[in-house]
Design a binder for these strands. Structure first.
Lengths: 374, 374
DNA sequence: GCACCTTGTGGTAGCGCTACCATGATGAGG
DNA sequence: CCTCATCATGGTAGCGCTACCACAAGGTGC
């Protein structure tokens, strides 16, 4: 890692007398063994709950452990224990804030379990093929795949072919062939739509996400279902295609706001597009939320850094990623030829976060809507 | 990334004498050494960025590392390296995107060095006093302080009094009593202003950051210096006070845009406020950058997620935080009574990132300006 | 010319723990 | 009584890496 910087590292002298290497501190297994009048091996057995230790010996050891306040050294344990789990986190180019949340969860859990996490960018699909088998050869046993990679069947297949364990995080739909951690996208979009309807809106616009990601379709379906259930008509003109990017959101919002009469609320499939919608509304001198309600999805950082802050759906990204790490660890441990490719599915709870971008329809709009009906 | 090199690992090591303990062998430092035709020690040096390695050797080793996809074993590292360091990252409430970048850098470096990183929110200053000594008693040896905490002398003093090592990241000015990692805020703001002037602008607005942070003042000074050097007058009406928040940016931008004649460019002291300025400009039906240039500072994720993407100053936040971790680790290791409170200062390189929010002044504005001069 | 650095490199000895034998003790079966 | 499985335990050899020298090669300075 060479960064273009100059640093003043003049200090190199300092001849301290090496106290860290041996010195004081931290009782070791040998200390315990001495105190319990047995060998380190026996202590190790007790710690690891092995069977073949006499009850009396075990008690002695336990006693010594308590007396010395001994805590086994994690690092040494996993070093000696051999097989350290290595997991790769592949990513294409998700939104940066999504990725950082994602990393936090994975890194934290990996550190807790003393698992090696390798973070790998994986730009192009053709390249990925070679990359994956290289990683597997290099000792990587599992792969965590955030969107949009989690929807790429060829990557999934490649991992399986190489003998790796794949866990997709946040795919729209789970296929049984691999593990997945997700939220119920359909239900979340449904809930949000219900929320908007509950505010009194009837003319609600929707911006679809990137059509290549399964989640986009599911969110749209959730929206549709709630609208239909409420007996509201869904005009094609009030549904715009986006790509999950801010820019695509601007284009889509522009289109929706130009419809006559305009929607009193817009539900965008992610926060970037919702933020763009707010910007477009402002450009038209519409107040958010008084003139128009705008809701997003994902609760990325953007949602709370713009004004008004967005009402959105919070995915527990960190927890989801942590869960993915756990799942790989588990799958690896019980990797009998049989259960190998089972593919556990976990659905986690999302949350509708209400902030300042939603409100009931304005009187003017209501009036307009009322008159329009007649 | 270089592909096309097949992995020659297995053919190279014919004997395969290991394999006893581990089934799936991850490449070790010895494998790399063999591939790079040097000793494991040299590889270790390269990995740890030590100085005394010839450039050619370093390159060879780096090459071998890449080829083998080698990843150092953290467990072994911390075992051999001695005690495990514990560092706290205290934060008040910086912008979320800043924080997430910040965390990434720290987490990554901490994980790389097997340092235990404790992330601690520290809302109120009175509370902080107790918190710090509690953490030190609990075995925390170092503290990383992002803005705005890095400007709080009482926190710094408290850490020193408790015997902890403090490193401020991104303070405006370094005091010798503690470590600091920063960029040259003044120079960066100066450069950006020069850039804007170079585009042909003369009537340039500025939005100041939170006055409690030293960096705000430095950025303002950099702006002033460049303006004066170019012989441009600085109207008080074209300088607005902000707080580094999106919302404060909206208020400030509104004020600046209402000035008659309005500025043809606005330089905001951070990206959040710049983004807000773009939004306000749009609300007034001003095109960015054709009608007005808007520049930010920090290059947080927001800068590239809105449209147009912001021209801004990129601080290597991640690298800076990583550097802070390194500095604490080093300071701790050579913590002789003498060198203890030395307080190393590191200044890192920033970069002016040009994107799509700047352009020369429009003809209309130029004309206006020209006529105004007469 | 010989002390002295300085610089790049290699060798060795562990860090604390566990895998894998090897060893004494036991008891059961012949 | 002697074999042979079955315990309970000990010894040894690393796991992968880094701290600490040692050492050779190339300067300086006088």
């Amino acid at each position: 890692m060479a960064i273009g910087m100059d640093i003043t590292q003049k200090s190199g002298t300092a001849t301290r007398k090496r106290s860290s290497r041996k010195g004081n501190s931290a009782p070791t297994i040998a200390d315990v063994a001495r105190a319990a009048h047995c060998s380190p091996m026996t202590v190790s057995r007790v710690i690891n709950g092995e069977e073949n230790v006499r009850e009396a010996t075990r008690a002695q050891v336990l006693d010594a452990i308590a007396k010395l306040n001994y805590i086994p050294n994690r690092a040494a344990r996993s070093l000696a224990g051999g097989a350290q789990l290595r997991i790769a986190l592949l990513f294409d180019n998700p939104s940066a804030s999504y990725l950082s949340e994602f990393l936090m969860g994975a890194l934290e859990e990996a550190s807790r379990r003393d698992i090696h996490l390798v973070v790998q960018s994986c730009e192009t699909v053709p390249e990925s093929k070679e990359l994956i088998s290289k990683l597997v050869d290099g000792g990587i046993v599992g792969f965590i795949l955030p969107p949009p990679l989690c929807d790429d069947q060829s990557v999934l297949d490649q991992i399986r072919a190489s003998g790796g364990i794949a866990v997709a995080v946040g795919p729209g739909r789970a296929s049984g062939s691999h593990g997945a951690v997700q939220i119920d996208e359909f239900q979340a979009a449904y809930d949000m739509t219900r929320h908007i309807i509950g505010l009194g809106h009837e003319r609600i616009g929707f911006i679809i996400g990137n059509p290549e990601q399964v989640a986009s379709g599911q969110r749209l379906e959730g929206f549709r279902a709630a609208m239909e259930e409420a007996g509201l008509t869904i005009s094609d003109r009030l549904i715009a295609q986006g790509q999950f990017t801010y820019r695509s959101g601007m284009v889509a919002a522009e289109k929706l706001l130009a419809v006559d009469p305009p929607p009193t609320a817009i539900f965008a499939s992610n926060d970037d597009m919702a933020a763009a919608t707010v910007a477009m509304a402002h450009r038209r001198h519409l107040d958010v939320p008084n003139d128009i309600t705008v809701c997003g999805f994902d609760d990325t950082e953007l949602a709370s850094s713009i004004w008004p802050e967005l009402t959105t759906i919070r995915q527990p990204i960190r927890e989801m990623t942590a869960q993915a790490v756990v799942m790989i660890a588990k799958a690896y441990r019980q990797k009998t030829p049989a259960s190998k490719a089972k593919g556990e599915q976990v659905t986690m709870a999302y949350k509708l976060v209400r902030r300042n971008s939603d409100a009931g329809p304005s009187l003017a709009s209501s009036f307009q809507r009322a008159s329009e009906k007649q």
